[in-house]
């Protein structure tokens, strides 16, 4: 019985983590889809949002969940500025190495992480919330439940807000004119241009949007974790793994990929060991590359074909 309880608890934890991962991965995926470049500063942008939330919390006692409303717009404009003044000029430059833009984003990430180290030192910091340890137990509500499962308040709120934002994004991409223009640019930028879509503008907006999404994810992550300046790198990798897992540039795939990754990581942490969780992350990444190169998106597609 205890074994089952641990298993179910691991699944819940994995699902909650996966919801957040989806949000992080979606940001990178839409940038990938529209710009055809990988933004290796993605995790560092999340780190910037986390520090914004941290500063707002320590200076004004603003709840990190509310600082989404400040951090996400700030990140939106930061993303636009990066795209317009650094990445766009490089897209036009002829060079021997084709991956110049990717290396450029590495440089941006390095600068951001290092500046954070200089400003905030490399200490681990937290935002202690009053409801951080509030926990709900299943047996309190269902007395005769055979297993006792628990869920903590910040994790639940984080998960729900992440799902809400992801749904909002889906609505934006599927139903609004601008969302449709962005998807058209991702599919075929030249055809989109012929149809009267301002492709350059869509690229800038997409980069801002992707940054804002990961910024929101940063604010959601801070109540359940801690921050340090080098936290970004691992999230860049996580979002890349999700992008591959989901199928390049597929938004739905990225959401599923995030959930799968969260579950898998949670399972490795429970059954193999905490230190190995990152290896589990990459094991699934390698497995996806070898056995399912098209990612989740290819699974969805093949189902639709039948």
């Amino acid at each position: 019985m205890i074994k089952l309880e641990i298993f179910l608890q691991t699944l819940i934890q994995g699902l909650l983590l996966g919801g957040l991962y989806s949000l992080i991965g979606v940001g990178m995926t839409i940038i990938m889809g529209v710009m055809k470049i990988i933004n290796l500063a993605h995790g560092e942008l999340m780190m910037v949002a986390m520090y914004i939330a941290y500063v707002l919390f320590t200076a004004f006692q603003i709840d990190p969940y509310f600082s989404i409303l400040i951090a996400a717009p700030v990140l939106f404009f930061l993303g636009i500025a990066l795209q317009k003044y650094l990445i766009n000029p490089v897209l036009r430059v002829e060079a021997i190495i084709p991956e110049n833009q990717v290396i450029l984003t590495v440089g941006i990430g390095m600068v951001l992480a290092n500046l954070a180290t200089i400003i905030f030192q490399s200490d681990y910091r937290q935002t202690p919330l009053s409801y951080a340890s509030k926990t709900w137990y299943l047996q309190d509500y269902w007395k005769s439940s055979p297993v006792d499962l628990s869920i903590t308040a910040p994790w639940l709120v984080t998960f729900l807000v992440a799902v809400l934002i992801t749904l909002g994004l889906w609505f934006f991409l599927a139903r609004t004119d601008m969302g449709k223009s962005i998807r058209a640019t991702a599919q075929d930028s030249e055809a989109a241009m012929i149809m009267g879509v301002n492709v350059d503008r869509m690229r800038v907006i997409t980069f801002g949007l992707g940054s804002a999404l990961v910024g929101a994810a940063g604010c959601l992550f801070i109540p359940i974790y801690y921050i340090y300046p080098d936290i970004g790198g691992q999230f860049t990798l996580i979002s890349f793994v999700i992008t591959i897992l989901g199928g390049l540039g597929s938004t739905v795939g990225a959401i599923l990929g995030g959930l799968v990754l969260g579950l898998f990581e949670s399972l490795t942490a429970t059954y193999v060991g905490m230190g190995w969780a990152p290896v589990g992350r990459f094991a699934i990444f390698v497995a996806a590359l070898v056995f399912l190169p098209g990612g989740m998106a290819s699974l969805l597609k093949s189902k639709r074909m039948k």
């Binding site: 002829e94 060079a95 190495i97 290396i103 590495v106 440089g107 600068v111």
Partner: peptide, 25 residues
Amino acid sequence: GAAHHTFFGLLLIVIIIFLPNGIVG
């Protein structure tokens, strides 16, 4: 000393934008 990554990052950005093929290239 603590800022050496910032310098490297800025150098990388400057090189990519202005000398995409490096000093020799």
